[in-house]
């Protein structure tokens, strides 16, 4: 396959970026999108140019490191992570636009790499449970109803890649935050911090400069792990409940 790539190049956080055009040849349809970029970078390095910086780690679709907006879609045209997107999704001769996540809370570090530590700070604000140290507790001591376990697991699938923020026209992190809140709030292990968790995580989300939710549904469409849009409603419900109960928790 022969492709024309238009890639966002930005020297550093303070520099102005722009799209640069590259031609790549000899691309196999079985290559992943990142392997295609590797091919481009090899050529750039051999030609003495600066290779395109992009985030990646496991390349198995489970770590959430890769983050590219391909032709205007976060993670490209298929519902998966960029690393699991293969070049068979494109046709020979295509022109492909590759851009970084765009949101005020995700500043560009270089080229296609953005700083997603805002997500880490949201997790730090409440994405934990209180557990006694020492021997592991007996696994069957705390029964969890099957529907609750399924609900928690569905939300625990979030890999924190940030595609929801990238896809949202408001740069909102509501889907990410709701996945993290719902995952723990529904479980008995998460019950002691049920109110403070949602208040603190939403508070941190706002403090990071993410936008609000206008229910466009773009986030849930882009999410490679299929976190559903009603998660946001579930978190709103938890938040409203917590504001009423907050007196009882020493916040």
């Amino acid at each position: 396959m022969k492709l024309t790539l238009r890639v966002w190049r930005q020297q550093n956080a303070d520099a102005d970026g722009a799209m640069s055009t590259y031609e790549v040849d000899g691309i196999s349809a079985d290559m992943s999108f990142l392997e295609m970029l590797d091919t481009l970078n090899e050529e750039l390095i051999l030609g003495g140019e600066d290779p395109v910086a992009f985030d990646h780690d496991c390349r198995e679709g489970i770590c959430g490191a890769c983050s590219l907006v391909i032709n205007g879609d976060a993670h490209g045209p298929e519902r998966t992570t960029t690393c699991q997107l293969h070049m068979r999704a494109f046709r020979d001769g295509d022109t492909i636009d590759v851009e970084p996540w765009r949101a005020a809370a995700f500043p560009v570090v270089k080229d296609l790499v953005v700083d997603r530590s805002a997500f880490d700070r949201i997790i730090q604000a409440g994405g934990y449970i209180s557990a006694p140290t020492g021997a592991a507790p007996e696994a069957h001591a705390t029964p969890v109803p099957k529907p609750d376990a399924d609900f928690a697991f569905e939300h625990a699938e979030c890999i924190g890649c940030g595609a929801c923020v990238a896809a949202c026209p408001n740069g909102s992190a509501m889907l990410f935050t709701s996945a993290k809140v719902n995952h723990l709030n529904v479980l008995p292990q998460g019950a002691p911090e049920r109110e403070t968790r949602v208040l603190d995580m939403v508070g941190q989300m706002d403090a990071e400069g993410f936008g609000g939710c206008t229910l466009t549904g773009e986030c849930a469409t882009a999410c490679p792990k299929g976190i559903p849009l009603p998660s946001i409603a579930a978190m709103n419900k938890e938040w409203l409940r917590a504001t009423r109960k907050a007196k009882k928790v020493g916040r």
């Binding site: 205007g72 005020a104 740069g171 936008g211 466009t216 773009e218």
Partner: peptide, 20 residues
């Protein structure tokens, strides 16, 4: 809220497509 939303997404994607 709108002011905040616009601030949260200061730059648009080069490759645009209709959203929502």
């Amino acid at each position: 809220l709108s002011r905040r939303d616009i601030r949260a997404r200061p730059s648009q994607y080069v490759h645009r497509r209709p959203r929502a």
